[in-house]
């Protein structure tokens, strides 16, 4: 460094020292800061010291300093949850006292129920039924108007409570479809004939002249009904409509007859509280297929 470099660089025009920074010939004057600015800066520094003391701030091994106020985000979360629960309480009391019919006709209770049901659905039911309740192969779509075990709000409530084919629940929905092929109940020709008949039902082209008709009447009608429209007490699906839980292709139907189908659903009675189950029932009911 030359000696002259160390010399102060005084701006000729204003007589004020420059910082030595230069851009395209423009030099920055080293004017002092306004006093209020310095004060604001000092006050914010003080503020940060206060903050370090009062709030958790410094990382130390095993966490951070605790701060004198005892504040944590967990506490704040718990407090705001308490607040929400307290706000819900007013509705909850009315909700508990009202029966399904009243709730379905009271806009305030109704939206309370569906909001609660929607949240519970996402947490518990969406895993199988999908977040939009649209289902997938083997998991019913709850938006449509086809119900295996009944679509009135009371039916849905019972299904959620006791589930389907839950072995240790006395009131669960129970039925069993025979695996006609696997267990050798029907010969291969007969299976093909009855599958053709069901395909005919699917397309609205089945007739009593078909070979499968008699086989159906003897083996299937006891659960699916002579008209094949299904029987809800057995959870037997309607085979004449447009909805096919396990697929509508001939191969899917063949598979169903040969190996049988038996969907399962857990009983929620002991996992969710009564209010949540009722809210779920109302939520599912209003998805679009609810029956009166």
């Amino acid at each position: 460094m030359h000696d002259e470099d160390k010399k102060k660089d005084i701006d000729e025009l204003s007589g004020i020292e420059t910082t030595g920074h230069e851009w395209d010939g423009l030099k920055e004057l080293n004017n002092p800061l306004p006093r209020w600015w310095v004060w604001v800066f000092l006050v914010t520094c003080l503020w940060s010291f206060w903050y370090f003391i009062v709030y958790p701030a410094w990382p130390v091994p095993g966490g951070a300093t605790k701060g004198t106020s005892g504040y944590t985000q967990f506490k704040e979360l718990a407090e705001s949850q308490q607040e929400i629960i307290a706000r819900q309480q007013a509705y909850l009391e009315k909700f508990e006292a009202a029966d399904f019919d009243e709730i379905l006709n009271d806009p305030a209770l109704y939206s309370f129920a569906t909001a609660g049901g929607a949240a519970a659905f996402k947490d518990n039911c969406a895993t199988c039924h999908g977040s939009g309740a649209e289902g997938s192969k083997g998991y019913p779509n709850l938006n449509d108007d086809d119900w295996l075990w009944g679509g009135r709000v009371e039916d849905i409530y019972t299904t959620i409570q006791h589930g389907i084919r839950v072995h240790n629940d006395f009131d669960t929905h129970m039925s069993q479809m025979p695996a006609f092929g696997k267990e050798g109940l029907l010969k291969a020709d007969d299976i093909n004939a009855v599958v053709d008949y069901v395909v005919g039902l699917r397309d609205g082209k089945a007739s009593e002249d078909m070979a499968g008709h008699t086989i159906f009447a003897q083996n299937c009608a006891s659960c699916h009904g002579t008209d094949a429209k299904g029987l809800r007490e057995f959870g037997a699906p309607n085979l004449t409509d447009a909805i096919w839980l396990y697929g509508s292709k001939r191969a899917d139907i063949y598979h169903s007859v040969f190996y049988a189908r038996a969907g399962m659903m857990p009983a929620w009675k002991n996992r969710l509280d009564e209010n949540t189950i009722r809210q779920l029932a109302i939520y599912v009911h209003q998805l679009g297929g609810g029956e009166e």
């Binding site: 999908g130 977040s131 939009g132 309740a133 649209e134 779509n141 938006n143 449509d144 108007d145 086809d146 309607n238 409509d241 447009a242 909805i243 679009g288």
Partner: peptide
Amino acid sequence: NPLFVRLSN
């Protein structure tokens, strides 16, 4: 979600 639903008829 769902975008559309097929009804039984």
